[in-house]
C-alpha cells in the first residue's frame, strides 16, 4: 500500500510519499517501502515569495503584456513566450516523461500547435504563462504515451496524476521555477524508486553504466567482473528494473 501525507508546517507543506512495487513479495521476502518527503509550497508561500521579488513582478508585468498581445493574435509575442518557456518544457516535462528525444521533440511541436490554436482561451492568473503551458504539454505527453508503445520509465497513469497536480499548481499560481523543480524532482523520485526496488548490485550497474555513462571497463572493474559479464549483469539489471517498474506507485493523500 502506498501513502502520501501533508505535514503541517506554518507557511509551507511537505508531502510524504511512499511507494511499494506490486510484486513486493515476489522473492519470498518483502521489499521495503520507499519513503520520500517532497517539498510542496503553499499558495501563501508562493504569493509571499512573489511579493518580495520586485524583479519577478516586473517580469510578470512584461509577460502579461506579451500574453495579451499573443491572445489578440500577435504571433511574434506568442513566439517570444514560447522561445522563453519551450526549452524548459522540453527539459523538465517532456523529455524525462517520454524518455526519448524524438518523442519529446514531437510532443513539443504538438504542444506548440495546440498553444497556437488555443491561446485565445488563455486567461491570465498572475503566475505567468508557464503553468498553463505545462498543463498543455503534459496532456500532449499523455496522449503520446498512450499511443506509442515503447520501454519507458513513466506510465500513462503517472502522467494522469502529474496533470492533476499541475492543474492544482496552476490554480495555486505556482511559479515557473517551482514548477520546473517539482517536475525534475518527480522524475528523479520515479527513477530512484525503480532503482531501489531491484537489488543493489543491479542498481549500481545501472547507475554507473547508464546514468553516469562510465565506460564498460570502468564499471566492470568496480563490480569485479569481466567486461562481457558486465554486459550480462546490465542486461539482467535492466530486465529486473523493467519488471519492478510494472508495480504500482500510487500516491495517496494522508491527513496530518
Amino acid at each position: 500500500m502506498n501513502s502520501q501525507g501533508r505535514v503541517a508546517t506554518p507557511g509551507s507543506s511537505l508531502r510524504l510519499v511512499a511507494e511499494v512495487p506490486k510484486d513486493a513479495n515476489v522473492y519470498g521476502r518483502a521489499r521495503p517501502s520507499i519513503l520520500r518527503l517532497v517539498h510542496s509550497p503553499s499558495t501563501s508561500e508562493v504569493a509571499s515569495a512573489r511579493a518580495l521579488d520586485p524583479v519577478r513582478i516586473a517580469e510578470l508585468a512584461a509577460e502579461r503584456e506579451l500574453a495579451e498581445r499573443a491572445k489578440a493574435g500577435d504571433r511574434r509575442a506568442l513566439a517570444e513566450l514560447l522561445r522563453k518557456y519551450g526549452p524548459i518544457l522540453y527539459r523538465s516535462v517532456l523529455l524525462p516523461r517520454l524518455g526519448s528525444e524524438a518523442m519529446a521533440q514531437d510532443a513539443l511541436a504538438d504542444t506548440y500547435v495546440r498553444v497556437v490554436e488555443k491561446f485565445v482561451h488563455f486567461e491570465w492568473r498572475g503566475c505567468g504563462v508557464y503553468p498553463w503551458l505545462r498543463v498543455v504539454a503534459m496532456r500532449i505527453a499523455l496522449d503520446m504515451l498512450r499511443s506509442r508503445k515503447r520501454e519507458r520509465l513513466f506510465e500513462p497513469d503517472d502522467l494522469v496524476r502529474a496533470i492533476d497536480m499541475a492543474e492544482r499548481d496552476l490554480d495555486d499560481g505556482l511559479d515557473v521555477r517551482l514548477c520546473e523543480e517539482r517536475d525534475l524532482e518527480a522524475s528523479k523520485a520515479k527513477l530512484d524508486s525503480g532503482l531501489a526496488a531491484i537489488n543493489s548490485r543491479y542498481s549500481l550497474a545501472i547507475r554507473l553504466r547508464v546514468l553516469e555513462e562510465k565506460s564498460r571497463e570502468e564499471v566492470a572493474a568496480t563490480l569485479g567482473v569481466t567486461v562481457s559479464t558486465l554486459d550480462v549483469v546490465l542486461h539482467r539489471a535492466l530486465k529486473a528494473l523493467k519488471k519492478a517498474l510494472g508495480g504500482d506507485a500510487v500516491e495517496e493523500e494522508v491527513s496530518p
Binding site: 519551450g86 522524475s187 546514468l211 528494473l241
Partner: peptide, 19 residues
C-alpha cells in the same frame, strides 16, 4: 534493443539534456 530504450529513458529522467 528494447532495454536500451529503457536505459535511455532513465538517462533522460536523471539528467535531461537541453534542446
Amino acid at each position: 534493443h528494447e532495454l536500451a530504450e529503457l536505459a535511455f529513458a532513465l538517462r533522460h529522467a536523471a539528467l535531461p539534456r537541453e534542446l
